[in-house]
């Protein structure tokens, strides 16, 4: 136990690193993913194709490879070679197609009858979207989006293997220092991950149940 108490500053530093990665790349992925989803359902064929290729490519390669590519390619785009921003960009890029798919399936999940009903009582395009379709779509999108964010929280650990200081890197460091208490130290790290993921999961479950009642 004293090993855990001794390592508290390291835990804290790692936890803050993980939260930073999660918050910044989470917001980035939500924005980028929504844009890609918009392209994916847009009436312009070329934009649709581009978004589809983007989604399929990024979804089917490992996150670590995305990070490596960021390390090699981004310096050519004048991004300074520092691991933290590179990891942020990598995590954002990797997560964005999953966000895009969640958003797209939410919008597609609103039954056609809803829009038809809105049109038939005389609402215009903007009114149909803002009053009928979007409120339902957003509600349906939130649980899968939270699940994507949970996966992102777990994926931030990969950035630890990419020289960024976060919980996984912290785990590496403290177990190197205190080889005698590895189990307790790693359980401590595990608890910190659970502190992030379990509440998010509970929120997702609660929202899902509320939506289920609505339908």
């Amino acid at each position: 136990m004293d090993a855990v108490i001794d390592s508290l500053p390291t835990y804290l530093k790692g936890f803050v690193g993980t939260l930073e990665l999660l918050a910044i790349s989470g917001v980035g992925a939500l924005i980028l993913g929504t844009i890609v989803a918009g392209l994916r359902i847009s009436p312009i064929a070329s934009l649709r194709t581009f978004a589809a290729v983007y989604t399929e490519v990024l979804r089917n390669i490992p996150l670590l490879l995305v990070l490596f590519f960021c390390g090699v390619v981004l310096p050519y785009l004048k991004v300074p070679l520092d691991y933290f921003p590179l990891a942020l960009i990598g995590l954002t890029l990797y997560t964005s197609p999953f966000v895009a798919e969640a958003v797209r399936s939410g919008v597609n999940g609103v039954p056609v009858g809803q829009a038809e009903a809105a049109r038939s009582i005389g609402l215009r395009f903007g009114q149909t979207l803002s009053l009928i379709v979007m409120p339902q779509a957003i509600r349906m999108v939130i649980p899968p989006l939270i699940n994507v964010i949970i996966a992102l929280a777990k994926n931030t650990s990969v950035a630890g293997g990419f020289f960024v200081y976060e919980l996984f890197k912290a785990a590496n460091d403290i177990t190197n220092l205190r080889g005698d208490a590895v189990i307790v130290l790693l359980l401590g790290i595990a608890v910190l991950y659970l502190v992030i993921t379990v509440p998010l999961g509970l929120i997702a479950g609660a929202v899902e149940r509320r939506v289920a009642v609505l339908r």
């Binding site: 979804r59 997560t95 999953f98 798919e101 969640a102 797209r104 399936s105 939410g106 649980p143 899968p144 939270i146 699940n147 994507v148 949970i150 996966a151 659970l194 993921t197 379990v198 998010l200 999961g201 509970l202 997702a204 479950g205 899902e208 149940r209």
Partner: peptide, 16 residues
Amino acid sequence: ARMPGAGMGTGAPGGG
């Protein structure tokens, strides 16, 4: 199979 989470390993704890 068309579920958005499929593919990211979005095993959400607590998510029913």
